[in-house]
């Protein structure tokens, strides 16, 4: 089917909303509360458009696209409404981009850029209002636009049921349990809210100041912890060769973007200063550094010796539930084909 946007026809798949149809075709309509996972909310009102045959403005995130539909996204009326909505968001709270972690990947910033809003029109000074009580999650209430994606994610996706809206009107605020600091609430710090927040209101506390969003490269791989096999994107700063943050891969069939506190935040071990970087050989009870060649030759001679003296079955090998299939395959091949024993196992049972 086809939908006309601003007079031009575009192909659209069945079952898409007007907003999705626009995005599928590379057209930008500002929108803050919609996320493919949490679905249309119709709340932020930034995505309003005009649709032929429908009265007034319509939120493009809630209207199903229909064949032959004619949508206007750039009329003065539409742009005035979008501009006011985004201006009001920018005017409420304190949206200072300079050292915001989300700078460059902020959906509010993108909307402001698209609409050409240089500075908020209705800004009044406000007191800083943040919550850094949580180990891994930093919340800046002044950057919250009440889109509700975190609340939807917490309750409907990870179903941890910690976040909700409290109070009302201009005082509306995302609360943890009965408005506790996040760190003392029942939050398990899965970070789904961090992943869904369109602004810099809920962010990975420890990634602050590590690297600008445009400086990192995202590499998709698999989480190293439990057996669920969550797909995880590691955000790598190439200059420093460091992982600066991790996010769940949204369309992954295993985890739908979800991660747990370990998968999302516990990648420190990779860059740990405790990493071993040279082979060690025990000598007189203590370790000394050695070259790979020396280590290999010691191992092969010792294992060869023991095999000759006590038989292959006097050697045991533990492969690893944390290594790859290829490594485990090679390990058991080594034990069976090179050493000559079936004494190979790993901690599946432990």
């Amino acid at each position: 089917m086809f939908v006309t946007f601003n007079g031009k026809k575009f192909p659209v798949a069945e079952g898409r909303t007007v907003l999705e149809a626009a995005r599928d075709n590379g057209l930008f309509i500002p929108s803050l509360c919609y996320h493919p996972k949490t679905g249309p909310a119709g709340k932020c009102r930034a995505c309003v458009v005009e649709i032929e045959g429908m009265r007034g403005l319509q939120t493009s995130c809630t209207i199903p696209a229909k064949d032959g539909m004619a949508v206007t996204t750039n009329s003065p009326k539409v742009l005035a409404a979008q501009r006011l909505v985004v201006d009001l968001m920018l005017s409420s709270g304190q949206h200072d981009c300079l050292s915001c972690e989300q700078n460059g990947s902020c959906e509010l910033q993108n909307a402001a850029y698209f609409l050409g809003i240089e500075r908020p029109s209705f800004r009044v000074d406000s007191e800083p209002d943040f919550d850094e009580s949580s180990e891994f999650i930093y919340r800046d209430h002044e950057k919250c636009i009440q889109c509700g994606r975190c609340v939807a994610g917490c309750n409907n996706t990870v179903v941890n049921e910690v976040l909700d809206f409290g109070w009302r009107g201009h005082n509306t605020k995302v609360i943890c349990d009965d408005d506790l600091p996040m760190g003392t609430s029942s939050c398990v710090q899965c970070g789904e809210c961090v992943q869904l927040c369109p602004t810099g209101s809920i962010i990975d506390k420890r990634s602050r100041g590590q690297a600008r969003s445009w400086e990192v490269e995202k590499v998709e791989t698999v989480c190293p912890y439990c057996g669920v096999g969550c797909r995880i994107a590691l955000h790598v700063d190439r200059k420093t060769n460091r992982i600066v943050r991790a996010t769940g891969v949204e369309d992954a069939p295993t985890n739908q973007g979800m991660l747990c506190v370990k998968g999302r935040f516990a990648f420190d071990f990779v860059a740990s200063t405790e990493r071993l970087t040279t082979p060690l050989i025990r000598e007189n009870g203590n370790f000394r550094e050695a070259s790979w060649e020396e280590a290999y030759s010691l191992i092969s001679s010792k294992l060869g010796e023991i095999k000759t003296k006590h038989g292959a079955d006097s050697i045991g090998g533990f492969c690893s539930a944390k290594c790859t299939n290829e490594e485990n395959y090679l390990f058991q091949k080594f034990m069976r084909a090179v050493i000559g024993t079936n004494n190979v196992d790993h901690c599946a049972r432990l």
Partner: peptide, 21 residues
């Protein structure tokens, strides 16, 4: 209206507060 705005949509929540100001 600013007092009674439920707070979920932007123009009502923030708009009423700005007009009141």
């Amino acid at each position: 209206y600013a007092h009674e705005s439920c707070g979920q949509c932007t123009p009502c929540r923030e708009g009423s507060a700005v007009i009141a100001r």
